[in-house]
Structures are given as C-alpha cells and as structure tokens.
C-alpha cells in the first residue's frame, strides 16, 4: 500500500516494481483467455497501463492483485472479441517435424488430447479450470477475477472435470477406431 501511495505521490518509476511482481500472473490470465502469446503480451501490457491510470480509484480495502487481475481479465476479453477475426494464431498451427524421444511423443500426445478435450468445454469452464490448477491462483482469486462467486466457480470446475473425463474417453475411443 505504501508503494501505491508513493506512486500516486509522483514516484511513477516505482510502478515498475508492481509490474515486475505481477507480470507473470497478468500474462498467464491473458494467455488463457486470448490463447495467443503476442496478443496476450499486448493485452497484459495494456492492462498494466490502464491500472496505472485508474490507480487513484483503487479501493484500499481490496487486494491489489485481485483488482489488477480483473482489469487484465476485462482487457483480455476485449482483445479476444476485437481480434477474433483478424488475429489468427499461426503459432498454434506450426507443426514441428523433428526427432523426439518416445517419452516426449507420449507427453505431446497427452497434451494434444487434453487440448482437444478442453476445446469442447465452454469458455468460462475452460478458463476456470485452467486457472484453478495453477497453484499460484486461489479459488477466491479465480472467482473474483471472473466476477462470479466461489461456489459457482467450484461447480464449474467440478463439472468441467467430469466433462473432460468424458471427452477424453470419447476422443481416445475415436483415435483407437481410426488406427
């Protein structure tokens, strides 16, 4: 809080400390929403700039991180809507042809199937479950940044896991049939 007071008093270079502390969290949230690295970076940067300008209005009773994450969440959602058509990720479509160890292939396959199953979830469930499993985010934070109560998020995560299990089973069955 003292740091925020000093920034507001004019020591704006101190804001870099706040950015350094929270940049990975902000970037992770943005990345989970926009699903594109350059776009996530831009969205997270915009969110920090917005936060700096709105810092005066920050309610000191609240947690700075939660307030910031909410700005990141809203900014990333706007980015996703705005750039949905124009900013197609080529990053995700790059296929690497290289010699990989068996364990790496197995790991990649697992990730591929999880991603495929995840795509079957609705956006909210997908985001909730992804953030919930990152140990750095608490359930309370996930709920607050998504603007929903904890119970709703709990139910979302619970149902999403069941749906994922069903989807994975379905995908693996289909894969086995095509072999």
């Amino acid at each position: 809080m003292q740091l925020i007071d000093r920034i507001l008093a004019g020591e704006r270079e101190l804001y870099a400390r706040l950015v350094d502390t929270y940049k990975s969290y902000a970037y992770t949230i943005a990345l989970k929403i926009v699903e594109n690295k350059p776009e996530a970076e831009e969205a997270a940067q915009d969110a920090f700039i917005k936060a700096f300008h709105y810092l005066k209005g920050f309610n000191r009773q609240a947690k700075f991180s939660t307030w910031l994450y909410r700005i990141v969440f809203n900014t990333a959602i706007s980015y996703k809507r705005k750039n949905r058509q124009q900013f197609q990720s080529i990053e995700n479509s790059i296929v690497e042809y290289s010699v990989r160890a068996d364990s790496q292939i197995e790991k990649d396959d697992k990730q591929f199937f999880v991603k495929k199953a995840m795509d079957e979830l609705n956006e909210a469930d997908k985001l909730a479950i992804q953030l919930y499993y990152i140990k750095e985010f608490s359930l309370e934070e996930v709920a607050e940044l998504m603007g929903q109560n904890e119970n709703t998020i709990k139910v979302r995560i619970h149902r999403a896991r069941q749906r994922l299990a069903d989807e994975l089973k379905k995908i693996l069955k289909e894969e086995a049939l095509t072999l």
Partner: peptide, 25 residues
C-alpha cells in the same frame, strides 16, 4: 491438468514496454 498448469512468463522487455507507454492510455 496439474501437469499442464503453470505460470507463464512474458518477454524480458515487458516491464520496460509498460513503463515507456505509461502515458498512452
């Protein structure tokens, strides 16, 4: 899910870019 979940890190120039664009809301 647990294996996939990790904190992602932005580029090294992230903070620098934010600080240089602070005036451009």
């Amino acid at each position: 899910l647990a294996g996939k979940a990790r904190l992602e890190h932005p580029s090294k120039v992230f903070t620098e870019r934010v600080m240089s664009n602070l005036d451009h809301l």
